[in-house]
């Protein structure tokens, strides 16, 4: 009944996820993107045919224990891990990023914002000069997207940080509109202004800013669409 055989991109909805329709809508504007909403209760079996997975933002399970913690322990994440190990692209946005760190697919943790308050605002992002599957064609660019989160303060151990920097695993950093990654523009206290992290294999990325909310000029920016377009392209490789 879910027509899983034709699925290309699985957009996972946990109870409490609330950006799934935004992501679906943004994907809907990308030619050739086939996406399907997958409720988490369907489990890992529902991901068998997926060419890629997006875990959208929101408050999965109310973020009741810790942002993303309950979702990360869900059975469907076994399926996500399998796909990831298979080299399929996995993108976690906001709560999705939190889920990916909680389940160990990405290093580090997302701690409460330095302000200890939710923060919703537009930010500029400096794209790393190293090419990744998700930022291809955007190298060194400055993007504008909104953030909206209470726990976006990226933290990792010194060792992890060294590896991230050494291997170019930080595709996005908070910057000013000229691309300077100065502390003053850091919205949440993230270590080294980190806004996104990618795994060593280059197929799993988590990002706090919302590309789907910057997908039409009338929303204030369409910069996010480029990242989603890259994601769609990488599902077809």
């Amino acid at each position: 009944m879910w027509g899983l055989m034709i699925m290309a991109i699985a957009v996972i909805r946990f109870p409490g996820t609330n950006n799934e329709n935004d992501v679906m809508r943004a994907l809907g504007t990308i030619p050739g993107a086939e996406a399907q909403l997958v409720p988490s209760r369907l489990g890992s079996a529902a991901l068998k045919e997926a060419d890629g997975v997006i875990i959208p933002g929101g408050f999965s399970y109310g973020d009741y224990i810790r942002a993303g913690a309950v979702a990360a322990a869900g059975e469907i994440m076994e399926g996500v891990k399998e796909l990831a190990n298979d080299g399929r692209p996995v993108l976690g946005i906001c709560n999705g990023f939190q889920i990916l760190t909680e389940c160990g697919l990405l290093p580090g943790a997302l701690l409460p914002n330095t302000s200890a308050r939710f923060v919703c605002r537009w930010v500029y992002l400096r794209v790393s000069e190293q090419t990744t599957a998700f930022t291809e064609g955007l190298e060194d660019a400055v993007l504008k997207m909104p953030v909206a989160h209470a726990d976006g303060n990226y933290y990792c151990t010194e060792n992890d940080l060294t590896v991230l920097n050494l291997h170019g695993l930080v595709p996005l950093r908070y910057s000013d509109e000229n691309g300077e990654t100065v502390p003053a523009v850091n919205p949440n206290g993230s270590i080294d202004n980190i806004a996104a992290v990618i795994n060593e294999a280059g197929n799993v990325m988590g990002m706090m800013p919302h590309p789907e909310r910057a997908s039409r000029p009338s929303l204030g920016s369409a910069d996010g669409l480029a990242i989603l377009e890259n994601f769609v392209r990488s599902t077809k490789c």
């Binding site: 701690l111 409460p112 914002n113 330095t114 302000s115 200890a116 308050r117 303060n153 933290y155 206290g189």
Partner: peptide, 13 residues
């Protein structure tokens, strides 16, 4: 509890 040395914004606030 947040580990020793880990920043704790809610506590600081």
């Amino acid at each position: 509890m947040p580990k020793e040395g880990i920043k704790n914004p809610p506590g600081e606030v």
